[in-house]
């Protein structure tokens, strides 16, 4: 059901029109000097990297089960059913845990603003909701970035690798990485040459913390009963001791009357 992007680096000609389209869609500045910046930033949500005659896009992977969304304490980041991982800036308090949690180091921050926002590619949620392609896919002149149903794009990517085994690294990046992403990559050279880590886990990142968080109610329940029980035992022992003490030593009787009665009760 969910939408995705398939980027095939072997078809990419490095024209950077996707950068241009992204900037227009997101009201970001774009110029020759920004085009030369080969990294994502608070004013550039996607970047085309160039290594000789090889290219690679960087953008938010829009994970199926995103670490950023699970990390965000106020649910400002959210995975939508349609695919995009969106950001509601009105909720964000700026803890930047999403930036730490993201396995691909995607979220950027407006460090030099007094009321900063987290910035990242959100896979054009408005366009997707309206049944359109993302801006980068629409503008791409070669079809290197293709928009479609995730399942269909996976089939197509597998087909391309089967048809031209010599041309591709036998791996669809994003198929299983961190439980799958809505951006799928094909490349002729190993992905880690462009900073896509080869050793990200294949299980969704949020599992790492949810395993622990799921125990919170148990800790509250069992801890409460246990501590309350210990208190009851230790203080009961005290009451009894006080009562016995009173019987032995009548000099303290007045002082202890309260405890004595408790002891008998």
């Amino acid at each position: 059901m969910s939408k995705a992007l398939l980027y095939d680096a072997t078809i990419c000609i490095g024209c950077k029109q996707c950068e241009q389209g992204c900037a227009t869609e997101n009201n970001l500045p774009y110029s020759d000097s920004i085009a030369a910046e080969e990294k994502q930033s608070e004013h550039k949500f996607t970047a085309v990297l160039t290594r000789g005659d090889k290219f690679m896009r960087r953008l938010c992977m829009n994970c199926q089960d995103p670490a950023c969304a699970s990390a965000c304490p106020v649910a400002a980041l959210r995975k939508t059913a349609a695919g995009p991982v969106i950001y509601e800036e009105g909720r964000c308090m700026g803890c930047r845990y999403c930036m730490l949690a993201c396995p691909f180091n995607v979220p950027r921050y407006e460090w030099n603003k007094l009321f900063p926002r987290v910035r990242k590619c959100t896979m054009c949620p408005n366009r997707v909701a309206a049944g359109k392609q993302t801006a980068c896919a629409e503008i791409c002149p070669t079809g290197a970035t293709k928009f479609g149903e995730r399942d269909e794009l996976i089939n197509e990517a597998q087909q391309r690798i089967r048809d031209n085994p010599g041309q591709y690294v036998k791996h669809i990046y994003g198929l299983n990485e961190v439980g799958g992403t809505s951006v799928l990559l094909l490349s002729g050279v190993p992905f880690d040459q462009f900073g896509y880590s080869a050793d990200v886990p294949t299980e969704p990142m949020p599992l790492l913390t949810s395993r622990v968080l799921s125990k919170v109610p148990d800790v509250v329940m069992l801890g409460g009963v246990l501590l309350g029980g210990i208190w009851w035992i230790t203080n009961r022992r005290d009451d009894v001791a006080a009562a016995e003490d009173c019987e032995k030593n009548s000099a303290f009787e007045d002082k202890k009357r309260g405890q004595d009665e408790n002891g008998k009760a």
Partner: peptide, 17 residues
């Protein structure tokens, strides 16, 4: 916006806890 976690919940978040 430090008070946001009071009304905006995400119980999957360690930061929320």
């Amino acid at each position: 916006r430090i008070w946001h976690p009071v009304v905006m919940w995400n119980d999957h978040s360690v930061m929320f806890e």
